Simulated assay, not measured.
Amino acid sequence: MRVVVIGAGIVGAAAAYELVRAGAEAVLVDAVHEGRATAAGAGIICPWTGRVADPLAVAGAGHYPGLLAALAEDGRTDVGHREVGALVLLPPDGEAAEQVRARVTARAAADPHAGEVTTVDAAEARRLFPALGHSGGSFQGTALHLSGAARLDGRRLQAALVAAAERHGLRTLSGTASLEARDGQVRGVRVAGELVSADAVVAAAGAWSPALLSPAGVHIDVVPQRGQIVHLRLPGSDTSDWPVVLPSGSGHYLLTFDDSRVVVGATREDGTGFDHRVTAGGLAEVLRHALAVAPGLADATHLETRVGFRPTSPDGQPLLGTVAPLEGLVVANGLGSGGLTAGPYAGTVAARLALGRAPEPDPAVELDLSPYDPMRFAPA
């Protein structure tokens, strides 16, 4: 069986890897658009703190241990993944803080991958993430520590998935794909004039999916949401084990990597289209929120600001499943800001659907795909 995957972000790369490991012939096509969400994403794996429960993201976090083990068997170990824990900075209002504490504790208790939840005081929080402290003022509140949270480098993981899949026979093509369909059945894709026949197609083209699918009569309601994410460096600081920092309520975050790099983000800008610019307002927003909780970053060096276009749906939920009007088409899209958390698992599910198989059950997660029906926004 041959399956074509369109889009080589984290979702498409994971789908291709699952397909070739299952023995299928797979072709991965990518247009290499500027602003792919995977290339810009921060890389936080901590789905237990949001205001709204996200079963797909929880399943995604639980999928990582097995995926990393499989990649290691294929000789791919350097994906920037480390279980560093997370600090959820509690709001100063006692009632609001208790609501956050109750929510996070309950969700963590339901998922063994979350690890242990403990309350830490300001001094311990500053010890774990020293940039929270500064001679001119420092974090004085309390925080929850989730030991199971992790961070990873999305670019490295995507490259590892593609390289490992190529080891199993994956073919990759660069260019803009167009769907080929006849009599209600996907027949393949056309890339640069070449027809690549296929029994099934996985559409994982992110925010660019409407342009891909509309000519085939498939309406996918996702739009690009611009995210600007700032990368800083603290020379001389060993940031390899610093936890992810999640201030309650703001939607912003801080995390670190091994090379004294601190990543702070992010904007959530709707209505920008594919405008791939770093803006003064976006940069100011991100740095203002970062310095408000981590004044120790004031002397950090600005390395770069990455811009990515998150694919978002009208209800904020992913689009994952088969497309009834066009047999053989599977859509995996709309993961928004949770792409690096849920993306590898969503890609794996999409691959299994393309092969006519059900997603593998996870005893820790009862995942119902019906809320993610990719055709739920289609015109009647």
Rank of each mutant, 00 (worst) to 15 (best):
S209W: 06
L68H: 01
F129D: 10
R376P: 06
G227I: 09
N333S: 10
L369N: 06
L19V: 01
F377L: 10
V365E: 08
G23Y: 11
V245C: 05
L353Y: 03
A69Q: 13
G328E: 08
A102W: 09
C46W: 04
R82A: 06
L89Q: 04
V186T: 14
R76Y: 15
L28E: 00
S313E: 06
D238M: 15
C46G: 00
E124V: 13
L195E: 06
R171L: 11
V201L: 06
R21A: 14
H81Q: 02
S250T: 15
P243D: 07
P243A: 09
A207W: 05
P91E: 10
H276C: 11
L87W: 01
T176D: 08
L369T: 04
L19H: 03
S370H: 14
P295K: 04
I44S: 02
G133Q: 12
E360P: 13
R21K: 12
R2C: 05
G175S: 07
G85W: 07
L90R: 00
L195F: 15
D221V: 11
L179A: 14
A200N: 02
V202F: 03
A150R: 02
G356E: 06
P243S: 13
D153Y: 07
A72K: 03
R357A: 15
W208F: 10
W48E: 00
V263W: 04
S250W: 11
D111L: 05
I229Y: 06
H276A: 05
L326M: 05
A102L: 13
L353T: 08
I44G: 00
A159N: 05
L255G: 05
Y253L: 13
A109D: 09
D221S: 14
Y17F: 15
L144H: 02
E180A: 14
V262T: 02
A203M: 08
G141F: 08
P243Q: 03
S337W: 07
D74S: 09
R376N: 08
S197T: 15
E73T: 09
D121T: 09
A324M: 10
P215N: 10
A324V: 14
P379L: 14
A350T: 00
R226Q: 14
Q317K: 15
R288M: 02
F309C: 03
G336I: 12
R101H: 09
A358V: 10
W242E: 04
I220T: 08
L340V: 14
T256F: 07
R357L: 15
G41M: 14
R155S: 13
G175E: 10
L132A: 05
L68Q: 00
D93E: 08
R126N: 04
G188S: 04
R352Y: 13
V330G: 09
G336W: 03
G282Q: 03
V117S: 06
S214F: 15
A290E: 02
A24P: 02
A216K: 03
S248E: 07
D30W: 11
I10K: 04
G175M: 08
A37N: 00
I45W: 00
L234Y: 01
L283G: 13
